[in-house]
């Protein structure tokens, strides 16, 4: 099995990180390139996900909302018939009154599904060490990590340096 290395570049600001990402993607790095940054940066996201699919989280939000809405109308109607409580001569199944419960359940399930799908796709919770991650990446440094065969790591390192990385480290990836 070929052994790989992680080449980890530390960048100081958004502009140099974006320039480096664009250059590295032009070099042909795609899935082996990973970026870590301390806050959501739409520019970086744009550079990395150009031509790729949108996050599937939205489908789960929709699904949760639908399940909540239909589920709430179903259980309110069924329960009102199963245990009939006549109120002011209104029909047992009074849809307008149930809209409130259905609305709340739509939001509730929509939110829960969104959270769980976000956790699932972002692969959290995950308490194992994440290769290539450095503590600085959560405070103020931008990190670009490339997984590359061991004998190529010097080339990548030099490339990162030429792209303006403040510091470049190499970590054994196995």
């Amino acid at each position: 099995m070929a052994s790989d290395n992680f080449v980890i570049g530390h960048f100081a600001d958004i502009a140099s990180t974006r320039a480096a990402i664009q250059a590295l993607r032009a070099d042909g790095y795609d899935d082996e390139l990973e970026a870590f940054y301390p806050f959501p940066e739409h520019g970086i996201e744009e550079d990395l996900f150009k031509g790729k699919k949108r996050s599937p989280v939205r489908r789960f939000t929709m699904l949760g909302g639908l399940v909540g809405c239909l589920g709430a109308f179903t259980f309110t109607s069924w329960m009102s018939v199963d245990y009939p409580l006549r109120v002011s001569a209104k029909p047992l199944v009074s849809i307008p009154a149930f809209v409130v419960v259905a609305f709340e359940c739509t939001i509730l399930l929509g939110a829960i599904f969104t959270l769980l799908s976000m956790f699932h796709f972002s692969k959290i919770p995950n308490f194992f060490r994440s290769p290539g991650y450095r503590r600085q990446f959560s405070s103020g440094t931008f990190g670009l990590v490339i997984r590359t065969p061991k004998d190529n790591s010097d080339v990548v390192k030099q490339r990162m340096e030429s792209l303006g990385a403040e510091e470049v480290e190499v970590e054994y990836a196995g």
Binding site: E34, F36, Y37, E45, R54, S55, F121, Y133
Partner: peptide, 13 residues
């Protein structure tokens, strides 16, 4: 970890 894949789903959520 704040990787680009995580931020992408995070921001959508």
């Amino acid at each position: 970890r704040g990787s680009h894949k995580q931020w992408r789903h995070y921001m959508a959520a």
